[in-house]
Design a protein around this nucleic acid. Structure first.
Lengths: 268, 268
DNA sequence: CGGCACATTGACGTGCATCAAACCGTGTGG
DNA sequence: CCACACGGTTTGATGCACGTCAATGTGCCG
């Protein structure tokens, strides 16, 4: 049990939401090394095109992944909250095509790729869990793409608040009707593909209809069901609700469920 | 060497574009079992919410991943060409939140998860390659998201044609200035988050400026550089150009490059 | 020949971007 | 303790890129 235990245990919690790990595997994750550092808002944690040698675990704060156009416009493609290993896939793809930037003052734990690769080789179950984590992140991306392509401003903003609500609640960082999201309206506009001005007007609409309020980085949802309806939101894609995180154990009757194998190869 | 050799070898080619595999690992992939089937255009290969027991390798044709809104609107979130194992991640996440639908008459090779899991356990290097493949797909998604959030119709359409050009060329299915993309304008509109009508007008613009033509499922690029500029396209994110697929071997001087390990653990 | 899927065109409306100014809270230095 | 700068929010005026609706054209197939 090292001094990074707090952060690693949040990360482990995240993995356990979708994957089953043996106690050895859990111990291996909790004993990962890493050095912490603080990054001020607006500063890059990871820069595009540069090869990195470690993955970044968010300990505290908020970070975003950004796709940058050559003309300077930018688009947030992911938001990372404490407990997220925000570039776990860098283990297999150490040269990103995007940047990761701190949105608020953020504490990062840098975990060397070499150690991550080591435990993946020793515990194939961890490898599957990491792979699954990458797939879960991709599922979120898909959903965002659907929102961007086919929904209007209100639905997009509403969907973002729904998603973050569920993620924050699952990470024990608030409840789905009240949680801290320390973003400016401009950052919100980067994350929704809109203008800061239009985000502002949209938030006013949501406020006026009694759906939610967002001020000083605090989200207060007054009408969760209404918000969900507006956003056309279902949480199954996040792979963390009770009924979807482990659908495997309930299904089928055959001797050994194939999906069971997928989830944990070395169940203790 | 089984009867599926042709399709599997295309799949292997795809993997080798970004990962290094030993000859044993290559053989293992080429000996994967699977049964083929044909799917008519508009029919689902995979349906959302339903647990699947196999991954789908596109042998011939074109398939798309769709995010469906409850009101019936839909958004294409990925396009899959021959050689793509379009839901490789289903191995670790067998219940998708999207559908995969054939865009043209498509031949699919169904490869059981159990066999994929077996070779991953025997050859960890294959596991890494699969994980990397999922990460590459996610990089494409990120790029799409940037396009949707921050670019206008012309740039979006142009970017799609650029991306498919490079992918088709890499897969030996044409050249970047002339390749077959058997999509209707409506399907194109699903993939770009636009309306079929506006896709039509946009294509006319591209035609009028002498940039490219798209008719009867054939893309002819007249001005590749101009198209790239319009799309703000760089191909590095696809992980398949010469300079980005293996940046590892050229870099650094230290005894053992960490990234080398990432790429292949069992280089023969 | 009729039917059907797809492409094209036109008229019209609107959701959002754009530009620009004002407002507001907070920290800072004179 | 006020002046001021600064990041963030809010408001208004204006324009356009795109969606929407609806009709017509076009090639293919039975």
């Amino acid at each position: 049990m090292n001094s990074n235990h707090y952060a690693l245990s949040r990360f482990l919690d995240r993995l356990l939401r979708h994957s089953t790990l043996s106690s050895d595997e859990r111990k291996a994750i909790l004993s990962l090394p890493g050095h912490a550092s603080q990054v001020q808002a607006r500063y890059d944690v990871v820069s595009p095109g540069k090869v990195v040698g470690h993955a970044c675990l968010i300990v505290k704060g908020l970070a975003g992944r950004f796709d940058q156009m050559t003309d300077g416009r930018r688009q947030t493609t992911a938001l990372h909250i404490p407990g997220d290993m925000c570039d776990l896939h860098s283990v297999v793809q150490p040269r990103p095509s995007w940047s990761i930037t701190a949105l608020t003052t953020t504490t990062i734990l840098h975990v060397p790729h070499s150690n991550l690769r080591d435990i993946v080789h020793i515990y194939p179950g961890i490898g599957l869990a990491f792979w699954r984590d990458t797939a879960a992140a991709a599922a979120i991306l898909s959903k965002w793409l659907g929102n961007f392509g086919r929904k209007d401003a209100q639905s997009r903003v509403a969907h973002l608040f729904c998603e973050m609500a569920v993620r924050m609640e699952a990470a024990n960082l608030g409840t789905r009707t009240s949680y801290e999201l320390a973003m400016t309206q401009e950052q919100l506009s980067d994350a929704t593909g809109m203008t800061a001005v239009h985000v502002n007007r949209t938030l006013q609409m949501l406020r006026a209809t009694g759906t939610l309020s967002f001020a000083h980085g605090l989200v207060e949802v007054y009408d969760w069901e209404g918000l969900k309806r507006l956003a056309d939101f279902t949480e199954d894609y996040l792979l963390m609700s009770a009924d979807s995180s482990r659908p495997y154990h309930s299904s089928s009757g055959q001797g050994r469920d194939y999906a069971d194998l997928a989830v944990a190869s070395e169940q203790q």
